[in-house]
Design a protein around this nucleic acid. Structure first.
Lengths: 114, 114
DNA sequence: TAAACTTATCGCCATAAGACGATAATAAGA
DNA sequence: TCTTATTATCGTCTTATGGCGATAAGTTTA
């Protein structure tokens, strides 16, 4: 439990979020807490792989977990992580629309050649 | 220039941001556009390494660049990327304060033992 | 206690990522 | 043109990451 700096933590958070499977896991868990046995059939990955991904999100303090009998139940620790993801999506959408805009301008300039 | 999905783009953005050197580069460029020759002395990394990092940020549409004579000048493409980073910092700070809170509670309970 | 269930961990492999020095490529200056 | 300056790219090395199957560890059930 070394006291980490904000810099270390933010890299850890961003790293944890920069994987498609983990983003899907968060989306899946946005519906509420789930045990691993529920999560597994929803993903086309091996049990060990999913377990590792969940642990990465747990280590980044994005997921919380509790043991209930023979099951482990994961849940979103701080729903504000979705604000973060939504902001990334917003930036991504802006990029796409700018690309589309650039495409239209290019097309227009090509059509206007004499 | 394959048309990417929002999912691909957001992973690309998050991956580009999940490196301490690249976060420092963004912070450095928050002061305004800079040529590589200005950036280099501010970082303890080789020229090839910095160039690669800059290119990763450029590929993620986070930085823009223009060639000016023999120099290449990089700049922040969309300042909203700092909103994103600030939100990550906010989450990180919340985690730290929760850790500190947990520490205080633990300490208190230890002191109260009879 | 034995068997079944659930999940974490281990070992391994393949690929990606970060680092560097060396080289290439281009522009400006002598 | 020859040299210098600037930056990108190449080759290489080391480490990190994601994937899997096998195994371990813990819990419940028979």
């Amino acid at each position: 439990m070394t006291p980490k700096s904000v810099s270390d933590l933010r890299v850890k958070i961003l790293s944890a979020l920069s994987d498609p499977t983990r983003l899907e896991l968060l989306e899946y868990l946005s519906g509420g807490e789930r045990c691993v046995c529920e999560i597994l059939p929803a993903f086309q990955r091996s049990q060990s792989t999913i377990s590792k991904h969940l642990n990465i999100l747990y280590e980044a303090n994005i997921l919380d977990r509790k043991v209930d009998g023979k099951r482990t139940i994961y849940r979103i620790k701080d729903p504000q992580v979705f604000d973060l993801i939504r902001m990334v999506d917003y930036l991504a959408l802006k990029q796409i629309s700018q690309l589309a805009e650039a495409g239209r301008i290019l097309e227009k300039s090509l059509n206007n050649r004499s």
